[in-house]
Amino acid sequence: MRERLLSLKDEALQELEQVQSAAELNELRIKYLGKKGPLTEIMRGMGGLSAEERPVIGQVANEVRGAIEAAVQARQDAFDRAETERRLQQEKIDVTLPGRVSKQGGIHPLYRIVQKMEDIFLGMGYKVAEGPEMEQDYYNFEALNLPKNHPARDMQDSFYVTEDILMRTHTSPVQVRTMEAMKGEVPVKIICPGRVYRRDNDDATHSHVFTQVEGLVVGPNIRFSDLKGTLLQFAKEMFGPQTQIRMRPSFFPFTEPSAEVDVTCASCGGDGCRICKHTGWIEILGSGMVHPRVLQMAGYDPNEVSGFAFGIGVERIAMKKYGIDDIRHFYVNDLRFLRQFAKY
């Protein structure tokens, strides 16, 4: 009997080895382990064994059954794994197809620049001041040392509404209004971003509407060298730490001394290229020490306080920074243009 069991085991294991499918395996399982299978039959026939033989043979029978069961299970696991594998293969998709992306919005390039400038000056302790875009002649010109019929008014051709009301030609009136509101208090440290208007025919480099950020500092001992330091810091943050500035004497009625400020050309680093017209420098802003008459008209004593002011054209900076060749793009709103700025 023992021999029969052992040969049954060998036979079963051998057959199990040959099994090709889960169905075949099931047949074999029934064949060997089923109620009508040889093992069951042998077990049933154990009744005829002696009391000594029975446990010995019983143990052998259990071992044989265990071995066959384990082999069946092993084959079953292999078939399950293969089945899972097959199913996963079937579920395969093309992962290179595009994902589902919501539409992407973005902030206008001019405002991106304004915001960056605001952040730079906020970091230096400035506040942001605003004022009307339509102004009184007094705030736009007279209080800035530009009396009526002054030749320097030709520098800014303007849109008048009435004899005394016009579209502001710079954001400097906000400086005057801020100083007036401060009623002689110092320090004043503001920047004034906003739209300004000049009578220009629109072309690639001129726009009748454009954006300015002006700055004003008034305090007990503000020096020209402070202006220089401030603008150098601004230029480094705006254009990168390698940036240098150069100041050239100039004229604005509301500052004395006055300076035009150039920064090293970012695209050639100052060596000279097409963008900077081979000078290595790009003019970006006008600045100077606040004219004593401007301080006086705004309620400050020029013997007690001094100040500096600067004005930056945002379009110009955006054009240089992004390589935009036509200022009109900023106001035409071609979505193919705006979309290019829908970035972080």
Partner: peptide, 9 residues
């Protein structure tokens, strides 16, 4: 998802 525009006044 909106783009910012800027028009003349």
């Amino acid at each position: 998802g909106l783009l910012e525009a800027s028009n003349y006044s």
